[in-house]
Each structure stands twice: as structure tokens, then as C-alpha cells.
């Protein structure tokens, strides 16, 4: 047994990947955090009061967990899904009835999406109720509000992708709200004065046309799968970094 242990661990390859052994020393515990690219945003030491679940509810971390689940299942779904008017609905049905493990991938994605929206709102509620938006955390509150909006936008753009009646009319109604927005929508106030028509307003840019069609489906897909997740990830890292820089995770005063 010991010889096998030596063969696996006492060679150049193992040592090039794992720089340390696992003796439980303060130094080793610290090194494990800041020597690891996935953990280096995390503080090396955490106060005992900072991990009191009854104070933070862990909602921010759970939101991030939901995001990771959504990223993984989302990539899986993309292997079967064509963002075209003819195929989108059928591909969604294929995932539900034919593709191996398709139905669990789709349902995980769907439920995790609902879950993330709910949890991110509870996170915001907790931050507000504990006053954690106050100095020096005002900037991070701002980032958090943007992330909340991005979460809603992810949810909204994903709604159209099954190309069913529910999503189609949700996007119809949602983009019509854009059309009714002052200054940038053709049905909103000042639209006549500014010569805003259905062909040059914000709705047109969202749909890639004047009606909900193939362009709208493709645009939703790109925003949902590429653009918004990319922006979100960048802001998430700013958000997590600032939690540390603003004095660590919010915790009880006493």
C-alpha cells in the first residue's frame, strides 16, 4: 500500500500539479486558498461570526451556485438546440422526449433559473435589511443592482427560446413595453416629435425587425447564451472582489 502511495505521489508529475502536502498547519491552510486560482478570490481567513448562517442566509453564494448549474446545463442544452423558427420548438420537444438525459437537463435549467431569480431577490432583501449597502459597500450595492437586472434579462431572453405560445407572447408584450418607453419607443411620449417609428426605435433593435420573428429568436439566443452571461461573469468577479476589499462578508456587529 505504501509503495503504491509513493508511486503515485512521489514523482515529478504529481508534485508539479500539487505543490504541497496536506499536513494540517496554519501555513498549509492559507496556501491552499491563495495558491488556487479557483479559490483566490476567497479570503484566507474568515471570522467565525462571518459564517453565521442566520445573518447572511448564504443567499449570494447560493445564487452563484444556481448560476454555475445554469451555465453547465445551458451548455448541454445548446448541443441539441437550433435557434431557428422552424426547429426551436421541435428541438425543445426532442430534448424532452428523445435526447438521453435531455429532460433532466432542460428541467434542471428551468428550475435553476426560477430558483436563481428568487434567491437573488432574497439576497438583495437580506443585504438591505442588514444595512450592508452602507459605507463602505455602496459601490458594491450598485454592482449588485446591475447584476439583479442582468439576472432578470437572462430570465426574459431565455423565455423566448422554446418558441412556444407562452414565450412568444411574453416577448411580444415585453418588447411592446420597450416600444412604449419615452424617447426611445415609437409608441412612447415624444415619439412623433423625434420621428421615432417602428423601424428605428428600441423595439426594432431588440427584435432585429418590426415583428417577433427569426431575427428576434436569434438575438434572444445570443444575448441569453453569450452576451449577458459574459457581462454577468465579469461583474460577478468585481462583486466578489469588492466584498473582500470592503471589509469581508457582512457580519453581526457583536
Amino acid at each position: 500500500m505504501n509503495s503504491l502511495y509513493d508511486k503515485v505521489k512521489k514523482n515529478l508529475i504529481w508534485k508539479s500539479v500539487f505543490r504541497r502536502d496536506y499536513r494540517d498547519t496554519a501555513r498549509n491552510r492559507a496556501m491552499a486558498i491563495f495558491g488556487n486560482v479557483f479559490l483566490h478570490l476567497h479570503p484566507v481567513r474568515v471570522r467565525e461570526s462571518a459564517v453565521k448562517l442566520r445573518y447572511t442566509w448564504g443567499m449570494g453564494g447560493i445564487t452563484f451556485l444556481a448560476f454555475i448549474i445554469l451555465t453547465i446545463t445551458g451548455v448541454v442544452l445548446m448541443f441539441y438546440y437550433h435557434p431557428t423558427v422552424d426547429l426551436a420548438y421541435l428541438d425543445m420537444k426532442d430534448l424532452e422526449f428523445q435526447a438521453p438525459y435531455g429532460v433532466i437537463s432542460r428541467n434542471l435549467h428551468r428550475w435553476a433559473a426560477h430558483f436563481m431569480v428568487i434567491v437573488v431577490m432574497i439576497h438583495m432583501f437580506r443585504v438591505f435589511m442588514t444595512g450592508s449597502y452602507k459605507a463602505p459597500r455602496q459601490f458594491n450595492w450598485g454592482i449588485g443592482v446591475i447584476l439583479l437586472v442582468l439576472t432578470f434579462l437572462l430570465s426574459f431572453t431565455g423565455y423566448l427560446l422554446p418558441w412556444d405560445q407562452l414565450g412568444f407572447w411574453a416577448i411580444t408584450v415585453g418588447t411592446n413595453m420597450g416600444a412604449a418607453t419615452p424617447l426611445i419607443g415609437y409608441q412612447g411620449p415624444f415619439s412623433e416629435f423625434l420621428h421615432i417609428t417602428p423601424y428605428n426605435d428600441i423595439r426594432f433593435a431588440l427584435l432585429g425587425g418590426a415583428q417577433v420573428g427569426g431575427n428576434a429568436l436569434l438575438r434572444s439566443y445570443i444575448w441569453h447564451c453569450i452576451a449577458i452571461p459574459l457581462i454577468s461573469v465579469i461583474l460577478m468577479f468585481v462583486h466578489f472582489w469588492r466584498v473582500r476589499k470592503d471589509g469581508g462578508i457582512s457580519r453581526p456587529q457583536h
Binding site: N200, F204, A205, G208, G209, A210, Q211, G213, G214, N215
Partner: peptide
């Protein structure tokens, strides 16, 4: 980038 979102030809 903004102008890019307004296509010149529509297939509607």
C-alpha cells in the same frame, strides 16, 4: 456597435 443592431434589409 449600436448601429449594427438596426439591419438595413428586412425579410418581413
Amino acid at each position: 456597435f449600436l448601429r449594427f443592431f438596426y439591419p438595413r434589409v428586412l425579410f418581413e
